[in-house]
């Protein structure tokens, strides 16, 4: 029995070592090249609307991830001198360095999803799919709401909207 658990422990250690050795995923797991973005600070504390930053949400199929120009609207000057994260972003703004964002909510390549269709025409609330992003404080998405095809289907059936495959898969 002892021996068996020994093997299990060895296996786990080796697996961890293997994972560490071969892991080459980007080390900064969120936000922008090292900057941790907080939805909570922006939306709850400063009361900024979603579409202020996700500018295309009502006009394009993609909501649009903000560019550095969008950030510079507010961050050209220091708002909260104590925030370390803000210092980083101001640096980006002053150098006009492009930001690389990590997208948490993506639809696969073979799915056509239009934000305009859902937000502008369908008049749906962002939170319906994305959950309450205003509570998003840390870099881990603790209330990440997975979006599956079943999620789409349920909603479409509830609202009596077409469920023809070809409307989303092309």
């Amino acid at each position: 029995m002892k021996r068996k658990s020994g093997f299990i422990i060895l296996f786990i250690i080796c697996a961890a070592a293997g994972f560490y050795l071969f892991n080459s995923a980007p080390k900064q797991s969120t936000g922008t090249g090292g900057v941790t973005f907080s939805h909570y600070v922006h939306t709850k504390q400063h009361n900024i609307k979603c579409k202020t930053c996700h500018q295309n949400v009502e006009t394009e199929e993609r909501a649009g991830i903000p560019t550095i120009e969008t950030c510079s609207l507010c961050h050209s000057e220091i708002i909260n001198p104590n925030s370390a994260e803000e210092k980083k972003i101001t640096e980006y703004v002053t150098n006009n360095k492009p930001l690389l964002w990590l997208n948490y909510y993506t639809v696969p390549d073979y799915v056509y999803f239009s934000h305009r269709r859902h937000v502008k025409i369908g008049k749906l609330d962002c939170a319906l799919c994305h959950g309450d992003m205003t509570e998003q404080k840390s870099k881990e998405l603790n209330n990440y709401k997975p979006i599956l095809m079943a999620t789409c289907f349920d909603c479409h059936k509830q609202r009596n909207i077409t469920t023809d495959c070809g409307n989303c898969h092309h």
């Binding site: 696969p108 073979y110 023809d164 495959c165 070809g166 898969h169 092309h170």
Partner: peptide
């Protein structure tokens, strides 16, 4: 489809 298009669902 109802609109007459013969669609192919790749997934």
């Amino acid at each position: 489809r109802d609109d007459g298009i013969v669609a192919q669902i790749y997934p």
